[in-house]
Design a protein around this nucleic acid. Structure first.
Lengths: 172, 172
DNA sequence: GACCCGATGTCAGTCGCTGTCATCACTCTA
DNA sequence: TAGAGTGATGACAGCGACTGACATCGGGTC
């Protein structure tokens, strides 16, 4: 990340990274499937947390509420790492290749969220829809949170976005 | 596309494509920025259609209705090319690299949709949200349409998905 | 001390992609 | 009609991401 922040992602070769880490290029690729993968370590753990929380939401909760419960858990997780999140976002936003990677990550969230919802008895167009919109809400709250200069509360931003969503969908 | 369908995307080199087209590899890259780009020709035209239709929706229409109007135009456009759409989807679904490309395409839709909505006077969290959820609706309807064996109506699937969305967001 | 095994280094090679320069058809103009 | 300009293409060299195959080495086991 230091190298990426200094010179940018494209101007950093895998050889550079490997050298800085004191290993061979070949060794780098044994630890990371991809050059981009360095920035997405632990992503699967986050997804697991999300899924677990949604699965564990009270039975009485509707699909969107269950998803919200999961997102709040993520908010808590990220809240303490605001500066790190900002720097990471800056790097990712600067490179299309990385933005793509970020998008598949979120798409993977949506897929597994839909699966969990189906497991909770939500029928199918609704499950997929709740999953996708939940992710959309997260994405927007995330942008606002990392954009915001003030010391805003991520969880609250998510909550507000859900409120906006309801307003938008019920209007007219 | 023929080559991709035969051997798969990864097993088709740019040299293969160029040879089949009777040109040099270098020439290929002068026409397409990317090996993937072959499958995404005309994508910008589709996006423009979408944006234009949303911009031209009646002023009285709410954000989500305006987006819906745009999506219906796309439905009409795609309706006649169902087999082509299916084949394309099969190729794309089979390769992560291509799925990524598809996702940025949709993300670009969302971005420009949000912009148009802002131009229509929709304030910001709502504009972004309506754009993202609209794209989510499209994605899901698209999947159902291309999955479906019967001769289903794409526009109607979109309409139904919007209905589902309202049901999901208003529930509890 | 012999053995095994997992992590690492080494090397060669493929493929996507780019910069550079030459070639060639085609058009415009004096 | 000759010659200059122009845009598309070919030819070639090169970089960087990534992979497969094999050698090496260090630590733990019997």
């Amino acid at each position: 990340m230091a190298l990426f922040a200094e010179r940018g992602f494209d101007n950093t070769t895998v050889a550079d990274i490997a050298e800085r880490a004191g290993v061979t290029e070949r060794t780098f690729f044994r630890h990371f499937a991809d050059k981009r993968e360095v920035l997405f370590e632990g992503a699967s753990a986050v997804q697991e947390l999300l899924v677990t929380k949604v699965a564990g939401a009270p039975e009485s909760a509707g699909p969107l509420d269950a998803v919200a419960a999961g997102l709040y858990a993520l908010a808590e997780l990220f809240q303490e790492r605001r500066d790190f999140s900002r720097q990471r976002r800056a790097i990712i936003d600067a490179t299309p290749e990385l933005r793509e990677r970020e998008l598949i990550k979120l798409a993977a969230w949506a897929t597994s969220l839909a699966e969990v919802l189906r497991g909770r008895g939500v029928p199918d167009p609704a499950a997929a829809l709740a999953a996708e919109t939940g992710v959309a809400v997260f994405r927007i709250a995330w942008e606002r949170w990392t954009d915001d200069d003030s010391d805003s509360d991520f969880r609250q931003l998510i909550q507000e976005s859900f409120g906006e969503l309801k307003a938008v969908t019920t209007a007219t």
